[in-house]
Design a protein around this nucleic acid. Structure first.
Lengths: 103, 103
DNA sequence: CGGCTATATAACCAAGTAGCTATGGTGTGG
DNA sequence: CCACACCATAGCTACTTGGTTATATAGCCG
């Protein structure tokens, strides 16, 4: 139940979640798509599992991993109070772009 | 221009941003509030600076650090496609809580 | 100018970790 | 029931990193 920040610091793990967002996958599929060794993939999956970010379904000797996005809410909560800081800037940028289009 | 994920994996750095969200601060203030050594604090500030998450203003021999939230948008972008996955669950939870209140 | 304050950088160390290969466990299918 | 496929874990290594102390740089003030 480590904060998801540390878990998501690893690009490979973000990539796994991106893939699972599409549909659940077997370890072998993930390993192939990541271009990573099978044990390496399993290690990342373990971290994600312990963080509650994925759930496993056993199908014979296979393991189907699926996304569990709930813990990401914690990340969103941390982010929330910052949102107004950059939306302002984006608004300013948009106005700037609009001005450039006019010219 | 490292992805902000790795930068924010460190609790001390998230704490720094939280403090700067309130108001800009000097290194000494941050060091004190974090309970960290001054060099340690400076090291974190360097990482945040290189990630574009803070900006510095020199005042004599002091350094006033301020929040620059723009790079957090990248984090928000990554998070966006996941949002619908847990809002569903939260909605369900809310309905459940409403039901409990009624009882 | 001399000493003090504020900060950055350097050098070092201990701990964590991501990758690998090797191996173990388990269920399938021929 | 046996050889194989799928996956997890163990064990190793190289690298990264967060913390420290020591030192350098720079500006202030008496």
């Amino acid at each position: 139940m480590v904060a998801p920040f540390a878990v998501l610091a690893e690009p490979a793990r973000r990539r796994i979640l991106d893939l699972l967002r599409e549909r659940p996958r077997l370890v072998g599929e993930l390993s192939a798509e990541l271009g990573l060794s099978q044990p390496g993939t399993s290690k990342h999956l373990r971290v994600l599992r312990e963080a509650g970010l994925v759930e496993v379904q056993a199908i014979a000797q296979r393991r189907r991993y699926a996304l569990r996005a709930a813990p990401l809410a914690e990340l969103d909560d941390w982010l929330a109070p910052y949102r107004r800081f950059w939306t302002r800037r984006l608004d300013a940028l948009e106005r700037e772009l609009d001005r450039m289009e006019d010219a």
